[in-house]
Design a protein around this nucleic acid. Structure first.
Length: 513
RNA sequence: CGGGGAGUGGCGCAGCCUGGUAGCGCAUCUGUUUUGGGAACAGAGGGUCGCAGGUUCGAAUCCUGUCUCCCCGACCA
C-alpha cells in the first residue's frame, strides 16, 4: 500500500540501521547522553525494561534463586585471578585510579596525584570474580550447596563500537551465579536457566529463539561451556539474546570455592553464570518494530491500553473525561496475561488524533479513542497496533460498544501477544535454509542477494583448536559466524561442510550483531 | 582502534568554498476560524552555530586540537 502515510520516515527495507535509530527516538525509548557509548533510557524504554525485570525476576526466584547486590568496583588483584577471564576482558576495562580531584589552577579539576589508589579498582564488566570471593566464604559444606544467587546491576565494557541497546559501554542486566557439588548438577542448572531464558524470550517478549550450545571459539572467557538463545532480526541477522555458562571449576579454583563433601574431603565447586541485558530491548525493536515505530508485546508494555479522549476545549469535555475514567476503571479491573490490565487515560492536552500517532510510534498495543459521538452511542474507536492499517490505507478502527471493548480486551491483548510471536516465528522459519552442503554453495547463497538471506543450517564435524580456527576464518570471509548447536536438533547424517569429514551435529551459521 | 561522513533553536536541514555576530521546514506558545479526526490562517518565543585554542578590525565560515554521533572494518559475554 503505497498510499499509506507511515509514522516514520525511514523504511526497514531501505536502511535497516537508520530505521532502527529512528524507532528508538520516535518511540521515545532512549537518547544520547554525551558520554561515549552510554545512553539515557527514557521512561517508555525503561518501563519496558522494568516489565522484563519483573517477569524474569519472578522466573529466577521460582527456580530457587535469591537476589544479592555486589560492588561495582572490583580490586584489580581479585579480577586477575582467572587467567582466561582476564585475557577476555582486559582490553575493555574502565579503571579507577584516584579518589579525589583538585583544582588545576585554570578553573578545571584534575585527579589529585596525592590521592592515587594503592591498588586500582576495575569497574565490573561482569562479577564472577568478586562473587566468587563471597562464595568462597559462604560455602563450607555440601549442605550449603547448591548456592543460587542473582543480581540486577549495571556493568561496563569499553566497547570499540557501540549501538543503542545492542552494545553500549554501560548496560543493565541480571547476572546469576551458582555453585554446585559436581559437574552434572552444575551443567543441569546451566540448561535449566537457558530454558528460563527461552521461556522469558518467547512467552514474555514474544521473541522466538533457538537455544543451543555455542562453539568453543565463542565461549565466555573462563567458561567450560557456553549456551545461548539466538533470535533472528528482521534483516536476517542473528542476535545473541542471552547466555548461560557452565564454568567448570575454573572460577572455583581461582577464588577458592571449596566444600567438605559427605566423606569429609575438600572439593572444588562447579559454578555457573548466566545473564540477559537491556540488549533484549534492541531485539524487541528489531523483531517487532515496523514502519510506524515499535510494537510492544502486551506482556512487557508499560501501558497495554491507551484511552484518548477527543477533548475540544469546550463544555462537554468534563462529561467525556468522566466517561473515559469510568471505562478506565472498568478495564483496570480486568486481568490480562495473568496480571491486572495496564490502562492509561491520557488526559494530556492536545488533539487526540495527533497524540494517537505518538502512541502508535511507541507501540502501545491497543489505543481507544473516544469522542462525543462515541459517548452518545456507547461505543469506542479501537485501534490494534499489530494490525494498524485497513485495506483502504487508513488506520483500521473498529467500533465495539464500551462494554464489549472492556470485556474483550484481555483476550485481545493475549491475541496480540500471540500474533506478534507467530509473525516473528513464521518469518524466522521462512528464513532458515537447509541442505547447503559445500562452501561454494554457502558463499553463493550469501552473495546472491543484497539483503541478508537469514540463517543456514549446516552439518559439521565439530572441529576444535586449530581446525576450528580454520573454519572460523572461512566463515569470516563471508562475514558469517557459528551461532549455536540447537538443543534437541536433528542428528547429523552427512559430511562436514568445512572439512569433508563425517558430520557429528547440525549448526546454525548467520551474520550477527 | 583504522577508513569515511557528520555535529547550526526540541527534530530535520540550508548557510561555510568566496569571513561582516543566523535562516528554512516541522514542532512549541498566543489569537482567530475550525474539528469524527495526523486542521487552517496570522502573529510570537526559542540558537553565544559540539567544545577549546589560534589567525583576523571582525569567525558558524579559515587553521590546530579535542569530544560526541553515524557507516564500513578490526574487536567483542
Amino acid at each position: 500500500m503505497s498510499n499509506i502515510r507511515h509514522a516514520l520516515s525511514a523504511r526497514r527495507a531501505d536502511d535497516f540501521a537508520q530505521w532502527y535509530q529512528e524507532v528508538i527516538s520516535a518511540a521515545d525509548l532512549a537518547e544520547e547522553s554525551g558520554v561515549r557509548g552510554c545512553m539515557v533510557i527514557k521512561p517508555w524504554g525503561y518501563g519496558i525494561w522494568e516489565r522484563i525485570q519483573r517477569l524474569l525476576d519472578d522466573r529466577i526466584k521460582a527456580t530457587g534463586h535469591d537476589n544479592c547486590y555486589f560492588p561495582i568496583f572490583i580490586p584489580l588483584s581479585n579480577f586477575e585471578r582467572e587467567a582466561s577471564h582476564v585475557e577476555g576482558f582486559a582490553k575493555e576495562m574502565a579503571v579507577v585510579t584516584h579518589h579525589r580531584l583538585i583544582s588545576d589552577g585554570k578553573g578545571g579539576l584534575i585527579p589529585d596525584p596525592e590521592a592515587k589508589l594503592e591498588e586500582p579498582l576495575v569497574v565490573r564488566p561482569t562479577s564472577e570474580t568478586i562473587i566468587g570471593d563471597a562464595m568462597a566464604r559462604w560455602v563450607q559444606s555440601w549442605r550449603d550447596l547448591p548456592l543460587l544467587t542473582n543480581q540486577w546491576a549495571n556493568v561496563v565494557r569499553w566497547e570499540m563500537r557501540t549501538r543503542m541497546f545492542l552494545r553500549t559501554s554501560e548496560f543493565l542486566w541480571q547476572e546469576g551465579h551458582t555453585a554446585h557439588e559436581d559437574a552434572a548438577s552444575a551443567k543441569e542448572h546451566t540448561l535449566r536457566m537457558l530454558e528460563v531464558y527461552r521461556a522469558c524470550a518467547e512467552d514474555d517478549l514474544a521473541l522466538p529463539v533457538i537455544a543451543g550450545e555455542k562453539p568453543e571459539n565463542e565461549r565466555f572467557p573462563g567458561a567450560a561451556e557456553t549456551w545461548s538463545i539466538e533470535a533472528m532480526m528482521q534483516d536476517g541477522k542473528a542476535l545473541q539474546a542471552g547466555t548461560s555458562h557452565y564454568l567448570g571449576t575454573n572460577f572455583a579454583k581461582a577464588s577458592g570455592i571449596q566444600y567438605q563433601d559427605r566423606e569429609g574431603s575438600q572439593q572444588f565447586c562447579h559454578t555457573t553464570s548466566w545473564g540477559v541485558s537491556t540488549r533484549l530491548i534492541g531485539g524487541v525493536i528489531m523483531v517487532h518494530g515496523d514502519d510506524d515505530g515499535l510494537r510492544v508485546p502486551p506482556a512487557i508494555a508499560p501501558h497495554q491500553v491507551i484511552i484518548l479522549p477527543m477533548l475540544r476545549d469546550k463544555e462537554g469535555d468534563e462529561e467525556l473525561l468522566a466517561y473515559c475514567e469510568k471505562l478506565r476503571a472498568a478495564i483496570a479491573a480486568t486481568s490480562s496475561l495473568g496480571e491486572k490490565t495496564r490502562v492509561l487515560l491520557d488526559k494530556k492536552p492536545g488533539k487526540a488524533a495527533a497524540k494517537r500517532w505518538d502512541w502508535v510510534r511507541k507501540g502501545a498495543p491497543v489505543i481507544l479513542e473516544i469522542g462525543g459521538r462515541d459517548m452518545e452511542g456507547g461505543t469506542v474507536s479501537l485501534l490494534r497496533r499489530d494490525r494498524l492499517w485497513a485495506e483502504n490505507g487508513k488506520p483500521d478502527f473498529s467500533t465495539p460498544t464500551v462494554e464489549d471493548a472492556a470485556s474483550s480486551l484481555p483476550a485481545m491483548l493475549e491475541d496480540i501477544q500471540k500474533s506478534l510471536f507467530d509473525e516473528a516465528a513464521t518469518r524466522r522459519d521462512d528464513n532458515i535454509t537447509r541442505g547447503i552442503a559445500d562452501m561454494d554453495a554457502l558463499a553463493d547463497f550469501y552473495s546472491s542477494d543484497k539483503r541478508y538471506p537469514g540463517w543456514v543450517e549446516v552439518q559439521w564435524s565439530k572441529p576444535t583448536g586449530a581446525a576450528l580456527d580454520a573454519v572460523v576464518e572461512k566463515l569470516k570471509a563471508l562475514k558469517l559466524t557459528v551461532r549455536n548447536v540447537p538443543v534437541g536438533g536433528a542428528v547429523a547424517d552427512g559430511t562436514c561442510i568445512f572439512t569433508g569429514e563425517p558430520a557429528v551435529e547440525r549448526i546454525y551459521v548467520a551474520r550477527a550483531y
